[in-house]
Amino acid sequence: MVPTKRNAVVDQAVCVACGCCVKVCSLSAIQILHGLYANVDSARCVGCGKCVRECPASVIHLKEVAR
């Protein structure tokens, strides 16, 4: 069985790049790329879900990904 972990995943097509998720992430695992959308550094993300709750557009979800 492949070991998995929870990760925040951004629907970048509808992300407004406001940066609320960046502010709330205690591990600095999210960045806004070129003012276009948020991008999660999956190596740093522990899937705590803070950004999911914060996102005003609700475009971040938690997903099981391969470790």
């Binding site: 406001c18 609320c20 003012g35 914060e54 557009a57």
Partner: peptide, 25 residues
């Protein structure tokens, strides 16, 4: 009604700056 910063979703300045970033990129 929605999330605290839901204004950011449809803020005209935000939309405009994102369009500028898109164009620049």
């Amino acid at each position: 009604l929605f999330k605290p910063r839901s204004w950011c979703v449809y803020c005209p300045m935000g939309t405009m700056t994102q369009l500028i970033c898109k164009a620049k990129n």
